[in-house]
Structures are given as structure tokens and as C-alpha cells.
Computed example of a mutant assay.
Amino acid sequence: MSKRQPHTLQTEPTPEGEQTLIPGIRPITTRDRLTLLANAPLRPRGEQEPLYIGFLDESARSQLDLFSRGVLITDELRDRHIANGAADDETDHFQP
């Protein structure tokens, strides 16, 4: 019988020291690490505010309604407009 020759294992230098490589497995290169980081989902740089839209939009609920008060312009502003030639029967002025 012939004597089996021992496999010489490949090694690579790492920050922790010399590491032995497993036969048949290629080492992770800098290119592999950069590709992994480039393909990762984007992360925000800072903490994000929650997104309130649609039915659960609490910010929209606290907004004032433009037409709920009834008066769109004041009497003083209306009089100035009429003095400058606006029609007297303005439809956007509410009389309670």
C-alpha cells in the first residue's frame, strides 16, 4: 500500500490571525462583502416618524375645515372688493 499524502490546507490572513480554509470552499472576498452590502435594503439614517395616511391619519383630523365656519371673507374685505368693482351678489359670502 502506498502512503497517503496529507492534504496541505490553504490559509488566509485575517485581523484575528491566520485562518485555515476548508477544502472546496472559496474564501469570502472584499468584493463579496461589498456586493452583500450593496444588495441589502436601505436603512434610514435617523429615527423615522410613523406614517399617518388614509383612515388613521390623526393629523388630518385636527385640520380646520375651510367651509365649516360659513364665512370665507370678512365684511370689511367684501366691502373693499365691492368698492373696487366686484359684483355685489358674491356667492362666497355667507349671511347667517
Rank of each mutant, 00 (worst) to 15 (best):
Met1Gly: 12
Met1Cys: 07
Gln5Glu: 08
Pro6Asn: 07
Leu9Glu: 00
Gln10Leu: 07
Gln10Gly: 04
Gln10Phe: 01
Thr11Lys: 07
Thr11Pro: 00
Thr14Asn: 03
Thr14Asp: 02
Thr14Met: 06
Thr14Gly: 01
Glu16Asn: 09
Glu16Arg: 05
Gly17Met: 02
Gln19Leu: 05
Thr20Arg: 03
Leu21Pro: 00
Pro23Asp: 03
Pro23Val: 02
Pro23Phe: 01
Gly24Trp: 01
Arg26Tyr: 01
Pro27Asn: 04
Pro27Tyr: 04
Ile28Asn: 00
Ile28Val: 15
Asp32Trp: 01
Asp32Arg: 00
Arg33Gly: 02
Leu34Asn: 07
Thr35Asn: 08
Leu36Ser: 14
Ala38Phe: 00
Ala38Asn: 08
Asn39Trp: 04
Ala40Ser: 15
Leu42Glu: 15
Leu42Asp: 15
Glu47Asn: 13
Gln48Leu: 15
Gln48Pro: 02
Glu49Lys: 10
Pro50Met: 01
Leu51Gly: 07
Leu51Thr: 12
Tyr52Gln: 08
Tyr52Asp: 01
Ile53Phe: 12
Gly54Ile: 01
Gly54Leu: 04
Leu56Cys: 09
Leu56Tyr: 14
Ser59Gln: 15
Ala60Leu: 10
Ser62Asn: 12
Ser62Ile: 12
Ser62Thr: 12
Asp65His: 14
Asp65Ala: 11
Leu66Pro: 09
Phe67Gln: 11
Val71Ser: 13
Val71Tyr: 11
Leu72Met: 13
Ile73Met: 14
Ile73Asn: 05
Thr74Ser: 15
Glu76Asp: 11
Arg80Ser: 04
Arg80Ala: 05
His81Ala: 14
Ile82Val: 15
Ile82Asn: 08
Ala83Lys: 13
Gly85Asn: 10
Ala86Gly: 06
Ala86Val: 08
Ala87Met: 09
Glu90Leu: 15
Glu90Pro: 02
His93Gln: 03
Phe94Lys: 11
Phe94Arg: 13
Pro96His: 10
